[in-house]
Design a protein around this nucleic acid. Sequence first.
DNA 1: CTGTCTGCAAAACGTTTGCATGGCG
DNA 2: CGCCATGCAAACGTTTTGCAGACAG
Lengths: 147, 147
Amino acid sequence: MESKSYTEIFKKNGIKATKQRELVFGLLTDSDVPLTVEEIYVGLMEKEKNMSLSTIYRILDVFVEKGLVQKSNITDNKAVYEVVGMGHKHHIICISCGKIIALDHCPIKEYEKALEKETEFEITSHKLVFFGYCPECKKKNEGDHGK
Amino acid sequence: MESKSYTEIFKKNGIKATKQRELVFGLLTDSDVPLTVEEIYVGLMEKEKNMSLSTIYRILDVFVEKGLVQKSNITDNKAVYEVVGMGHKHHIICISCGKIIALDHCPIKEYEKALEKETEFEITSHKLVFFGYCPECKKKNEGDHGK
DNA sequence: CTGTCTGCAAAACGTTTGCATGGCG
DNA sequence: CGCCATGCAAACGTTTTGCAGACAG
């Protein structure tokens, strides 16, 4: 919440510490939902007005490459980013308001192993996304989206 | 394989039959892998040289809206499309050669129900994608991508 | 015949890149 | 002080849109 420093995390992962990287990582860390690049951009404008979009893209690429951040191409057009605590995340998206929620539990670890045998692929990762109506939008729609 | 007609399917779904729609739907039906718009485009150039890219996009939008076709934003940049027989499809993608294979079995039907209770979302659909090395690329990489 | 679909071209959108400058180690 | 990171602007690739003409029902 404060302007905490992530220098140690960066050092441990071979990432040079810069003000921009601290800001981006901090915003992602404090967020409880995955963020788009644009959301990061506007979210940091207050703190660092000259922050460039391309800088954010480049920073996120570094974080993703180092395994600190997970990039998810969930929706049609925009990628979302979030810090990876331990283990990957899955998501559930409200198709009405666009809200995205991260899920920690992964229900397909065993299935993945079975699938490896069946397909002879070497599976390295997977992505799981659910779509539906969040509690709030569910109420609003009550009785009319069933056709 | 032949220039079979899908007029009945279209009529049943309230879609006006046109030559372009027949061609696109036919190509998707005959393909055993999901196709990108560009693949559809080049795949149809032989049969219909004046086919426009935007027409393909618009046709696919109609098919998706009517539930005949599933659109999947799996990779970072391009969407892929495939006909939905009965039930949705999942995918496994080779991160080396880009090959995409469709999976019919869905391992998370029950989990979805549990998740609905837990999150109070009304879940309408989901997407599951696996990434890894296909049998061929696995061989090529043998012993060197483990770092 | 009428409304929808198509082709074309241009625009929009998210993302990437080249280059000169700036700042971390 | 050297090299990597940044800002800016321009380029990129996919997808969308406006419009006039073509076609299905």
